[in-house]
Amino acid sequence: MGNGDVARIIAAIRGDKAALAGSLAVLFFIVLCLGGALIVPYSAATMPNLSMAMLLPGERGTLLGTDELGRDMLARIIWGGQNSLVIGLTSAVLGALPGVIIGLFAGYYSESPISTAIMRLMDVLLAMPRILLGIIVVTILGPGEFSISLAIGVSTIPSFARITRASTLALRSAVFVEASRAIGNYDRVTLIKHILPNILSPLIVQFTLDAGQAILMASGLSFLGLGPQPPAAEWGLMIAQARVHLFSNPQLVLIPGLCLLFVTLGFNIVGDSLRDAIDPSLGRVSRSIRSAGVVTAR
């Protein structure tokens, strides 16, 4: 179970140059930030060294230059990226897991008043912009890495709950699910064996797209000063701090900005091509042929 999905995903990415580039970009940053942190000491990213301040990329042996306090930009990108990626991915998981569980139950037991009530709450949450939900959570918990992870996670739950519920609902009346009940399977067997594997594809797509958005949001909240606090490094925070030097040293904004862009772009491109590959209704030729009536669907 699930092996088929992994194989399909790998095949989809292989067959699509854009998706390959996207996943390589994501992989590159993950290796850079998680691996780099093993080599570059944390202090290099946080300890000021005023004698080296405001070096341009390439100057005095630095690869990406230094910031206004003389801290090496590469070190800050590595440690900042680790923060951004870890916060983003943790929060995507924090949102996806409860979202999927809620969605499965609300979809399978859709007549129950409890699921109706839960989904109504999800609708209200979904109507709120995620950034606002994030700020509400931060208001309660105070700024910091943990609270923005939780904030983004909470704001992700409704979309996962929605998409899972919709797919579950669509499958619940599917004949093979009905057949599973007619055979005498327990509900939990039906849910786990027959429904979950068949809705995994849209969930993987959603997760990929959401991971990109979560990283964006994490950096956005940090940019507002609600995430990690200085002297810690985080891409959004780095950009916020470099704003005052935008006119004189735009590279301080541009470098972390491009890193953020590439990671998110990578996730989005991969998510898009997975969706195209997995969703048969978007299938290119097959669809037009069907509409032409070659396969008479009766």
Binding site: V175, F176, E178, A179, K193, H194, P197, N198
Partner: peptide, 9 residues
């Protein structure tokens, strides 16, 4: 619908 009554997985 014999196409829908078998779990594709």
């Amino acid at each position: 619908d014999p196409f829908a009554s078998l779990n594709p997985r």
